[in-house]
């Protein structure tokens, strides 16, 4: 055993990834880039879940099972997202969020 890993390393990494994803999701104007940023946030969640599972409850696989569910559902959501983006591209010839402004208060 050299340097002992502890869960806080993973949680800091995950917090950093989550913050990057959140920043991207809020600041990017391209719909696909926003979708990718949301994926980064979900990756942060998965790192968190798996690391905590390893350190906190190594005898039960709660976190790992949860992470698999998250990956599966995220794939479904991205599939749907890309379908809608393609449909709206056909309709408006743009995927820039600033152009989706037909409805405003």
């Amino acid at each position: 055993m050299g340097t002992a890993l502890n869960p806080s390393y993973f949680m800091v990494l995950s917090a950093a990834l989550f913050a990057i994803g959140l920043y991207g999701a809020l600041s990017r104007k391209n719909a696909i880039a926003v979708l990718i940023s949301i994926e980064i946030m979900l990756t942060a969640v998965n790192i968190n879940l798996v690391a905590i599972n390893k350190f906190l409850t190594p005898e039960a696989f709660i976190g790992q099972i949860f992470a698999i569910f998250v990956i599966t559902v995220a794939a479904a959501e991205v599939g749907l997202g890309l379908a809608i983006i393609i449909a709206i591209y056909r309709n408006r010839h743009t995927v820039d969020l600033d152009d989706f402004n037909w409805m405003k208060w």
């Binding site: 949301i38 709206i88 989706f100």
Partner: peptide, 28 residues
């Protein structure tokens, strides 16, 4: 309808990610 769809999709995805991160912190 499509514009509403894409707005809902992106913001719902964002909120799901936030909820999940909250779950993982409570798990921790």
């Amino acid at each position: 309808s499509l514009e509403a769809g894409i707005k809902y999709l992106l913001q719902a995805g964002l909120s799901s990610a936030v909820i999940l991160y909250g779950f993982s912190l409570i798990y921790a």
